[in-house]
């Protein structure tokens, strides 16, 4: 892999292993997709929905493992089905915490059932829940390239309408914009992005790439384009550093990624609190 990070011998040594090259490639692609998609997830307050996708995907992946199909197929199937269902209920449905929570709990239960029916290794379940970036194959990398290209093209196509509809729903609707289409399209993008991000972070740690980088970036820029670039940068940096550190320590990659993004988020928020004196009380409305 040819990131011109630092010609450290450590890095050379690490990239000597094919599984680390695969991990860096898949991690990079996923970080780009998650950083960009995550910005809209945060803007539209759909974080919980995104999480629900990953859990529905978990049930799908567990079912796939049970019938000896690639877990990614189950993940995609599960999360896309969930995405279409939620989109069909309309934008306001994405904020229905209770219903989403109910479906989420049921999905986890189903996943648990499939896992317990599976007589193979329990590590399958573990890797879906917490990520198995170090076990990514060449084929999975290629598949991730395809998904990455499709998602970027999709977001590029709907960028302005999606931003407008997310920011100012009522006016966008009155302007005759296809709200149902936009909502459904976005949910599909999130479903696919989540499915691939699960490879890196696992179902349970999906927020670390889909939400935290974008939430941090929102504090750092008031311009959507800039915030998206920052969000992607944070996701990339966390993934690379996480992989690098994990290679030389006995601890899991996902942990380092979550720790790095959380540390950054905390640092940004605390810095802002420190440098921004309490806003002067506004005289009136």
């Amino acid at each position: 892999m040819t990131f011109s990070v630092n010609p450290l011998t450590d890095l050379q040594q690490m990239l000597h292993y094919q599984f680390m090259v695969n991990a860096f490639e898949a991690g990079t692609l996923v970080a780009i997709v998650a950083g960009i998609t995550g910005y809209f997830v945060v803007l539209r307050r759909s974080a919980f929905t995104a999480h629900a996708f990953s859990e529905i995907g978990f049930a799908g992946a567990a079912a796939a493992v049970l019938v000896n199909v690639a877990p990614i197929a189950g993940l995609l199937g599960g999360s896309i089905t969930g995405g279409l269902a939620i989109a069909a209920l309309g934008r306001r449905a994405t904020n229905r915490d209770t219903q989403i929570g109910i479906v989420l709990a049921f999905s986890l239960g189903m996943g648990l059932l499939f896992i317990s029916l599976y007589t193979g290794y329990a590590t399958e379940a573990y890797s879906i829940l917490f990520g198995e970036i170090l076990g990514v194959s060449r084929d999975q990398v290629l598949l991730t390239v395809g998904a990455c290209v499709a998602i970027l093209a999709g977001i590029g196509l709907v960028y302005r309408p999606l931003l407008f509809a997310s920011l100012d729903e009522d006016v966008a609707e009155a302007k005759g914009m296809p709200m149902l289409f936009l909502g459904t399209f976005f949910m599909l993008i999130v479903a696919v992005a989540v499915s691939f991000a699960v490879q890196v972070t696992g179902v349970l740690l999906i927020f670390s790439l889909m939400v935290t980088p974008a939430a941090t970036a929102q504090y750092l820029s008031r311009r959507p384009q800039t915030a998206i670039i920052i969000s992607t940068g944070i996701a990339l940096m966390a993934t690379w550093v996480g992989l690098f550190v994990a290679f030389y320590t006995p601890y899991p990659v996902s942990f380092f990624i979550t720790a790095i993004v959380f540390g950054l988020y905390l640092a940004v928020r605390l810095t802002r609190l420190a440098i921004r004196p309490k806003k002067l009380p506004v005289a009136s409305l």
Partner: peptide, 23 residues
């Protein structure tokens, strides 16, 4: 929502346009 006002006003004009040309 930490997005500058200018962006919303600009979307009032270009929010209906497909494709990526935010600049």
């Amino acid at each position: 929502t930490n997005i500058e006002s200018l962006e919303l006003v600009r979307l009032g004009l270009s929010g209906k346009k497909w494709g990526f040309n935010p600049f």
